[in-house]
Design a protein around this nucleic acid. Sequence first.
DNA 1: TAGGCCATCTGGTCCT
DNA 2: AGGACCAGATGGCCTA
Length: 208
Amino acid sequence: MEDIFFDFDQDAATDFAFWGQIDPNFQFQSQLDTLLLDCSAMTGQLSPWSSFGCQTVFPEAQLTFTDLDSQSPQLEVGAEVDSSLVDEPHEIGKCRQQHQRRLTSHHPYKVQRHAANIRERKRMLSINSAFEELRCHVPTFPYEKRLSKIDTLRLAIAYIALLREILMSGCDPKSYVDECMKNGYKNQTNAIWNTSDLTARLSWIKWD
DNA sequence: TAGGCCATCTGGTCCT
DNA sequence: AGGACCAGATGGCCTA
């Protein structure tokens, strides 16, 4: 378990290490989402990762449209309609396109199903980009490994709950948290912290 | 090797 | 009717 150092000083914002800040290239994500369904425009590689600062933290997490296509079992049954996306040798690609065109004309259901698959992938990518954005707004450490989706949600819930408590208390954030640590968490809101490994995290907090 | 996490496919349901 | 949303199933990757 990694050490966690929450600091609620006035300049606490600078003490939190976030997964990154939204950079000026934020709009790239929406453009990417648009491109995901614009099959005819696609020939190269794409990353489903947002272009937030977080992306640079995990450069290995790249996925190409070719990957997506090749992973699709539908490819084998010829239901593809976006084979133009596949980066492959010219002749093979041509044959495949013709073959698929034949098959798709006879399998309207498969065409529909594949279109639905593409929409679903796009939807999941947008959800994932939202998770990336959320990761950028919860306090973590540079050396801490990437939060899973469920941990991101839990940490966000806990973080919001703590911020709300601090606001409602009207106390100095640092002294409020100090008090919480001294007295332990007893109220209902604080129970949220026990829903995950956040309790363990808190036991490692150093407040100076 | 088991378990966690994730992406993807799929069929069902709901909504516009 | 078509798209969005959802949950279950499946398989891959990674780590302890």
